[in-house]
Measured scan of single mutants.
Amino acid sequence: SDPSEDRAPESARVGNIPSSTSALKVPQLKVAESAQGPAAAHTTDTAGYNAMEESVSREKPELTASTERVNKRMSMVVSGLTPEEFMLVYKFARKHHITLTNLITEETTHVVMKTDAEFVCERTLKYFLGIAGGKWVVSYFWVTQSIKERKMLNEHDFEVRGDVVNGRNHQGPKRARESQDRKIFRGLEICCYGPFTNMPTDQLEWMVQLCGASVVKELSSFTLGTGVHPIVVVQPDAWTEDNGFHAIGQMCEAPVVTREWVLDSVALYQCQELDTYLIPQIPHSHY
Results as ranks from 00 to 15, higher is better:
1 S>V: 09
3 P>A: 08
3 P>R: 15
4 S>V: 09
4 S>A: 14
4 S>I: 08
4 S>T: 10
6 D>F: 03
6 D>K: 08
7 R>T: 07
8 A>P: 13
8 A>N: 10
8 A>K: 06
9 P>Y: 05
9 P>K: 11
10 E>T: 08
12 A>H: 15
14 V>N: 08
14 V>C: 14
14 V>I: 06
15 G>C: 08
15 G>V: 08
16 N>V: 07
18 P>S: 07
19 S>H: 09
20 S>R: 08
22 S>N: 09
22 S>L: 09
23 A>L: 14
23 A>H: 05
24 L>I: 13
26 V>R: 09
27 P>I: 03
28 Q>G: 07
30 K>E: 03
34 S>E: 14
35 A>H: 03
35 A>I: 06
36 Q>R: 08
36 Q>S: 06
38 P>L: 04
38 P>F: 03
39 A>I: 14
39 A>P: 12
42 H>E: 04
42 H>Q: 14
42 H>P: 12
43 T>G: 09
44 T>L: 07
45 D>G: 10
46 T>R: 11
49 Y>Q: 11
50 N>M: 04
50 N>F: 13
50 N>L: 12
52 M>D: 12
52 M>A: 04
53 E>S: 11
53 E>F: 09
54 E>P: 03
55 S>T: 09
56 V>R: 06
56 V>F: 08
57 S>R: 07
58 R>I: 06
60 K>A: 04
60 K>R: 10
62 E>N: 01
63 L>H: 02
64 T>A: 07
64 T>V: 15
65 A>N: 11
65 A>H: 13
65 A>G: 12
66 S>T: 06
66 S>Q: 14
67 T>G: 04
68 E>I: 06
69 R>K: 10
69 R>M: 02
71 N>S: 14
74 M>R: 04
76 M>I: 15
77 V>L: 02
77 V>I: 09
79 S>G: 03
80 G>C: 06
80 G>S: 07
80 G>L: 09
81 L>V: 14
82 T>H: 06
82 T>L: 05
84 E>R: 08
84 E>A: 04
85 E>I: 05
85 E>L: 03
86 F>V: 10
86 F>E: 04
86 F>I: 05
86 F>P: 02
87 M>N: 10
89 V>S: 10
90 Y>S: 10
90 Y>V: 07
90 Y>H: 10
91 K>A: 13
92 F>Y: 13
94 R>K: 06
97 H>E: 09
97 H>S: 10
98 I>K: 04
98 I>Y: 07
98 I>L: 13
98 I>H: 05
98 I>D: 02
99 T>V: 02
99 T>R: 15
100 L>D: 00
101 T>H: 11
102 N>C: 08
102 N>S: 10
104 I>R: 00
106 E>R: 05
106 E>L: 15
107 E>N: 01
107 E>G: 05
107 E>V: 01
108 T>R: 00
108 T>P: 01
109 T>R: 00
109 T>S: 12
112 V>P: 01
113 M>N: 00
113 M>V: 04
113 M>L: 05
114 K>I: 05
115 T>L: 00
116 D>T: 05
117 A>L: 08
117 A>K: 11
118 E>K: 05
118 E>A: 09
118 E>L: 08
119 F>R: 09
119 F>I: 02
119 F>G: 12
120 V>G: 03
121 C>L: 00
121 C>N: 01
122 E>Y: 10
123 R>P: 01
126 K>R: 01
127 Y>A: 00
127 Y>L: 00
131 I>S: 01
133 G>V: 03
134 G>Y: 03
135 K>W: 03
135 K>H: 15
135 K>N: 09
135 K>L: 09
135 K>T: 08
137 V>S: 00
139 S>I: 00
139 S>G: 06
140 Y>S: 05
140 Y>I: 02
141 F>Q: 15
141 F>H: 02
141 F>L: 05
141 F>I: 02
143 V>T: 03
145 Q>E: 05
148 K>L: 14
149 E>V: 03
151 K>R: 12
152 M>G: 01
155 E>L: 08
155 E>F: 08
157 D>Q: 13
157 D>A: 06
159 E>A: 04
161 R>E: 02
162 G>L: 00
163 D>F: 00
163 D>A: 00
163 D>P: 00
165 V>T: 11
166 N>V: 11
166 N>M: 04
167 G>R: 01
167 G>H: 03
167 G>L: 02
168 R>L: 11
170 H>V: 06
170 H>Q: 02
170 H>D: 02
170 H>T: 05
171 Q>I: 06
172 G>S: 09
178 E>L: 13
178 E>A: 14
179 S>G: 11
180 Q>R: 09
180 Q>V: 08
180 Q>L: 13
182 R>T: 11
183 K>D: 06
183 K>A: 14
184 I>K: 00
186 R>Q: 09
187 G>L: 02
187 G>K: 14
189 E>L: 08
189 E>C: 04
189 E>V: 08
190 I>P: 00
190 I>Y: 01
190 I>L: 12
191 C>R: 02
191 C>G: 09
192 C>A: 10
192 C>Y: 02
193 Y>S: 09
194 G>R: 07
195 P>T: 11
197 T>P: 15
198 N>G: 13
199 M>Q: 04
200 P>T: 14
204 L>I: 05
205 E>R: 08
205 E>T: 11
205 E>K: 05
206 W>A: 09
207 M>V: 12
207 M>G: 00
211 C>T: 15
213 A>S: 09
217 K>D: 15
217 K>Q: 14
218 E>W: 15
220 S>R: 13
221 S>K: 12
226 T>K: 06
229 H>P: 13
229 H>V: 04
229 H>M: 14
230 P>A: 10
233 V>E: 01
235 Q>R: 02
237 D>T: 11
239 W>T: 14
241 E>V: 05
241 E>R: 14
243 N>Q: 13
243 N>L: 12
243 N>V: 14
243 N>A: 15
244 G>L: 15
245 F>A: 12
245 F>R: 05
246 H>V: 08
246 H>N: 05
247 A>Q: 15
250 Q>A: 13
252 C>F: 15
252 C>K: 07
253 E>N: 13
255 P>D: 14
256 V>G: 00
256 V>W: 11
258 T>I: 07
259 R>P: 04
260 E>L: 06
261 W>C: 01
261 W>R: 01
262 V>P: 04
262 V>D: 01
262 V>H: 00
262 V>L: 03
264 D>R: 07
265 S>P: 02
267 A>S: 15
267 A>E: 02
268 L>V: 13
269 Y>Q: 13
269 Y>R: 11
269 Y>K: 05
269 Y>L: 15
272 Q>E: 15
272 Q>V: 12
273 E>T: 08
274 L>R: 15
275 D>P: 12
281 Q>A: 11
281 Q>F: 03
282 I>P: 15
283 P>R: 09
283 P>A: 11
284 H>A: 02
285 S>M: 14
286 H>L: 11
286 H>V: 15
286 H>K: 07
287 Y>R: 07
287 Y>T: 09
287 Y>G: 12
